[in-house]
């Protein structure tokens, strides 16, 4: 157990070391790639599904239930499900082969980031769907009715009624998800452990590795955390302000 020596005061030594550590810059870059791409895909897919399941048709209630299953499964279970997808003999390569493409190593250096993002998207999109659905249901039907009277097309209705009225929900949902995706430890940890060759070394993984795996240096890891904290605090500040308006 890495309890280490009794603490000694080292001044700013640790900060000097952390700024010279390549992991710091790599992890920042990986985290932004991971979080922004994942949130973008989740938002687009979630919005699509919410619009679809806001329509009246038979089996809608059933589908709304089914749609929360990926979100109900804890992230580590989603990771296990995708171990089977990304295995060389697994579902991913079978799908590629049916389309006449070559098998790939899903978690190899070139594809790892994309594959891990896909797991996060699969787990996280129902959160967007549910948030957007709540937002859509809060839009009064009369607005659409009067728009139809004025001769608006469905694209115009979407552009001028749905989107503007969905904006507050949109920012809250995206903000929360961005926060959680940037702080997501479980999915990258279970899929790749940050590898291969730091290809998916996001901030949470880097922090864990410094403290418990490569360096076993809890003070250094704490300094690392403090160094990246402003990124998170800015986002938290933004979200809390948005949420407080809502309550």
């Amino acid at each position: 157990m890495p309890t280490g020596l009794s603490p000694t005061f080292v001044g700013l030594e640790n900060y000097k070391e952390i700024l010279g550590l390549p992991e710091l810059y790599v992890s920042l870059q990986r985290t932004f790639t991971y979080a922004f791409i994942a949130v973008l895909i989740k938002a687009v897919f979630g919005l699509g599904v919410a619009l679809l399941l806001n329509q009246e048709f038979r089996g809608r209630g059933f589908l709304r239930g089914i749609a929360i299953i990926p979100y109900a499964l804890p992230p580590f279970i989603c990771a296990i499900l995708f171990w089977f997808v990304y295995d060389y003999r697994g579902t991913g390569n079978i799908i590629l082969e049916t389309f006449g493409l070559n098998s790939i190593h899903w978690l190899g250096y070139d594809h790892a980031m994309f594959s891990v993002i896909l797991v996060n998207v699969w787990h996280g999109w129902p959160f967007f769907f549910l948030g957007f659905l709540v937002g859509l249901q809060a839009i009064p039907v009369e607005l659409y009715e009067s728009a139809v009277v004025d001769g608006a097309s469905s694209i115009q209705k979407f552009r001028h009624i749905t989107l503007p009225l969905l904006k507050p929900v949109f920012f809250i949902v995206c903000g929360l998800s961005l926060m959680w995706t940037m702080g997501d430890f479980v999915i990258p940890w279970f899929m790749t452990g940050g590898g291969p060759l730091d290809a998916t070394l996001t901030i949470p993984i880097a922090s864990y590795k410094l403290a418990f795996l490569t360096r076993l240096d809890i003070p250094l890891a704490s300094v690392y955390n403090v160094t990246v904290l402003p990124v998170y605090l800015l986002l938290i500040y933004y979200i809390v302000k948005k949420l407080e308006v809502g309550t």
């Binding site: 959680w180 940037m182 901030i203 949470p204 864990y208 403290a211 955390n225």
Partner: peptide, 9 residues
């Protein structure tokens, strides 16, 4: 909303 990984160390 605070990310839990910061609490590990």
């Amino acid at each position: 909303i605070f990310p839990p990984f910061i609490l590990m160390a």
